[in-house]
Design a protein around this nucleic acid. Sequence first.
DNA 1: CAACAATATTTGTACATACAAATGTAATGC
DNA 2: GCATTACATTTGTATGTACAAATATTGTTG
Lengths: 154, 154
Amino acid sequence: MSIEKAIKTTAPMEPRNKAVINVLYTSRYLEATATHFKENDLTMQQYNVLRILRGQKGKPANVMTVQERMIDRSSNTTRLIDKLVKKSLVKRQVCQQNRRKIELFITSEGMELLSSLDPIIEHHNKEITQHLTAKELETLNLLLDKMRNNDKHL
Amino acid sequence: MSIEKAIKTTAPMEPRNKAVINVLYTSRYLEATATHFKENDLTMQQYNVLRILRGQKGKPANVMTVQERMIDRSSNTTRLIDKLVKKSLVKRQVCQQNRRKIELFITSEGMELLSSLDPIIEHHNKEITQHLTAKELETLNLLLDKMRNNDKHL
DNA sequence: CAACAATATTTGTACATACAAATGTAATGC
DNA sequence: GCATTACATTTGTATGTACAAATATTGTTG
């Protein structure tokens, strides 16, 4: 469905305004379709943190490092991690070299949860992108990267 | 910047996974750069509602109608509208034909606020899309529409 | 016309998020 | 070695959001 139909606008939109709204709208669509997170009592952000910690392959990560790599840089990574610790998916310990820092590890429970989610996510992403060819996916990635290539902000 | 660099992943990503993350990330980027909303004590959703009501050109809209046209369909359109009413940007009255319904109008104050925002948004969207040609914008819109063309969800 | 279902909106509750300020720790200059 | 600044994380507070349940009104059926 075109974005105009999706949000039921009658007046035709300028391509650049349309593109901005289209990115926002498609992002919400992706979030809404990603039901597997809720089903596992995770938010997308919590999942994202787990993925980052798994990517560390045993090396500890501190809060800042995690934050820098997050897709959605919530200002409150602390409380996000709190939830994961409470669920025993993440372990938290004070760094001995620099006690200001916190060392974060994914637990084996966390690893298991991710393992069980892996095929589901993989399948979901395939489904989401099923109508796009390899070439189109490449183009889409290129154009989105280009859109963010702004340097005036952030 | 490529999405890999942006979120500092070391392992190369599959294009389809990359595309999904890229849409989410770019959307957050757009939200973060849209500082003019906060400066006018509006959230993006509140702005969106005002735009929808202006689009009605005097015709009243009810809550459901607004919700259907929103980019981000929050389940709580009621409270969102509460805020706008409190700020005198929107007027709310019970529909006489069907008293379950609520008729929503943008006030002249709301119209004025939108008018003052129009050039700012226009400028911002130009800036955001400055590196994309007309052809590229068209392609981007097409590919995003295609991505949502899924029918299995929503 | 009473009972029930359908529709439109609101409210309750729990949780998430944003931003600023506070805390605790380390590094630097004098 | 003490004060000052910078750094890493946490907490406070206000606000926003999600989902379910509640309320109010209308339409339908026996």
